[in-house]
Amino acid sequence: MMAKGAPPSDDGVVLRVAGLRKSYGDSEVVRGLDFSIRRGECFGLLGPNGAGKTTTLRCCLGLIDPDGGSIELVGLPVPQAARAARVRVGVVPQMDNLDPDFTVTENLVVYGRYFGIPYATLRARIPKLLEFAGLSSKGDVGIRTLSGGMKRRLTLARALVNDPELLILDEPTTGLDPQARHLIWNGLRQLLSQGKTILLTTHFMDEAERLATRLAVIDHGVMIASDTPQALIRAHVEPEVIEVFGDEALAWADAHGRALATRLETAGETAFCYATDPKPLLAALADAPGLRYLHRPANLEDLFIKLTGRELRD
């Protein structure tokens, strides 16, 4: 076992996953996944529901045993040394699981004890954690009176109680309103600027685009693309998008859009015209005054839809 505070691997890799496989019965949920996260990165793991994100995280934490492949977390083999590895990792789960019977401070103290942190150390850390969560005045308040955003921020602060080398966040802003999401993002950016390493799963593309320095798109248990967000968009999607919507949009798309766009997709009453050169499309739209459209640069959502398709995943 490594001494507390020892650096992870020499090469700066905080998490290394190689050839990871996991099946449930006849269905193979993770089918040979490889990725690694270096210190200081914010790595985004994207994928539709059921793509294998949560299973991958549970394997990385040593909560379930993989059927194949290897995992090295903060320099330790998982699941063999999972307990020692988890001492140096923080986790923000998908659903809040704060202790409802405790105050804000008690939640941090009790959670810190699970890591074996001495009370004096905890007591010194807590004011900073409360300040980070914007809950300095709420230390003695019960959890039940906190808003959803406050609970999430406290959950994030709780994950930092052991000053982790890697912070794992499973859909950290699902269910939050826009204001609360921005506060969480600010907090995460602050952590990144302090040199923390983050592994983030999300299905909010704006979240991934804002935070992730590198990301991987996984679907059906395999990685289908991995790079920086900008490089992925450049490599897979035409640079500009014109969304045409309204009653006549689909008819217009069939008559004109399809010929002028590099690639055209429809979803409901909207036609997505992907183009390297948008000028002919814009000119054609100028001649169709009844139509509404939005001209914008391609983003991560376009990439995600292109790679994983438009059909609904439940």
Partner: peptide, 10 residues
Amino acid sequence: RTWEAIINAP
């Protein structure tokens, strides 16, 4: 989900 929180710790 208290147990879930605990088993994410060591």
